[in-house]
Computed example of a mutant assay.
Amino acid sequence: MAGKTLDSITSQDIAALGIPSEEAEKLHQTLLQIITSCGAATPQTWSRISKELLNPDLPYSLHRMMYYGCYSHFGPDPPAWLPDPENVMLTNVGQLLERRGKEFLGSRYKDPISSFSDFQKFSVSNPEVYWKTVLDELSISFSVPPQCVLYDNPSRENGLSYPGGQWLPGAFINPARNCLSVNDKRTLDDTVVIWHDEGDGGMPINRMTLEELRREVWYATFYLTTVV
């Protein structure tokens, strides 16, 4: 949907949507303050517009004008949502890119949000580097390590075919060991299971630490090996 950029919208444009002139002027002044502070087309711009300018009582046409004005540079398919920069830094991907973004992307790296598309392309074109990084970040250990991350042209051994290639050929992994082990990113006190009992919508969410999970697994193992 084509429309005006935020910095070209006037109070008259806002009033034309059926908003009283005095209110339209106030909304326009708020818009100008946001643009001055954040620019006319940034994730921060839309975040502030949605919190400080828009509200459910204003006509949908204004919401649409602000939205497409902010994301006019995205073309006909702007994003439905972008995370706050502060929250991005708390994610695993955000922290990884902050540490190693320049290593992966060189001078193209700016920040986790702006560079996410470039990082996605990097992950596709460099599967060995990307997936080794992911496995290291997740502290996944193999009983037998893979020969490589992706074997593009595997032979048809035992009648098996691998459309698109064979991932982690030759690898053996013990899922239980990976789930129950302590490593440099997980302690016995960390929460590893979160669940909610069905039918108890008003009850608190249940949590289990790694130490508690290991104890439950030990009980189950003891029962299966000595009683059953």
Rank of each mutant, 00 (worst) to 15 (best):
S47I: 13
E23S: 08
M203D: 13
E137V: 10
S115G: 08
I9A: 01
Y109L: 03
S117C: 07
G165M: 08
S139N: 07
L138D: 00
R207W: 03
A2K: 14
V88M: 15
R214E: 01
P83S: 11
L90F: 03
P79D: 05
T187D: 13
P127I: 09
L96V: 04
L54G: 01
K110M: 05
I194S: 12
P146L: 07
G94C: 05
A41D: 15
R64K: 15
S155G: 02
S181G: 02
N55M: 04
P112E: 10
L6K: 11
L135I: 15
S21V: 12
A15H: 09
Y68G: 01
S123I: 06
S37T: 13
M203H: 10
V88Y: 04
R100P: 00
Q166N: 03
Q166P: 01
Y60R: 08
A24E: 01
P59N: 02
T45Q: 02
L135P: 02
A220T: 09
N87Q: 15
A24Q: 00
L150H: 02
G3R: 07
H73R: 13
P83Q: 07
T187I: 01
T191N: 12
F222N: 11
P83G: 04
I113D: 06
A40H: 13
W131K: 05
F104D: 02
E212K: 14
K102E: 13
R186I: 07
A176L: 15
I140D: 02
I194C: 11
C148N: 08
S155Q: 09
S115D: 05
E23D: 07
D152A: 14
L180V: 12
M66W: 12
S115C: 07
K4L: 15
R99P: 00
A80R: 13
S11P: 01
K110Y: 02
D189E: 15
P79G: 09
P85T: 03
T10W: 06
D77R: 11
N174T: 04
T187Y: 05
L96T: 07
A176V: 15
G69N: 10
P145D: 06
E98S: 06
T10E: 05
I140W: 02
S155I: 06
N153V: 12
Q33D: 14
Q95W: 00
S8M: 08
I194M: 13
A40V: 06
V217P: 03
E137F: 03
P76N: 05
N158K: 14
I113W: 07
L58K: 07
L105A: 10
M1N: 11
Y130P: 01
S47H: 13
T30P: 00
N153F: 13
A2W: 03
K102R: 14
T5K: 13
Y71W: 15
R100L: 05
E103K: 14
V227I: 14
D13C: 06
S61W: 01
N55Y: 08
L135K: 03
E216L: 11
D13S: 06
D184L: 03
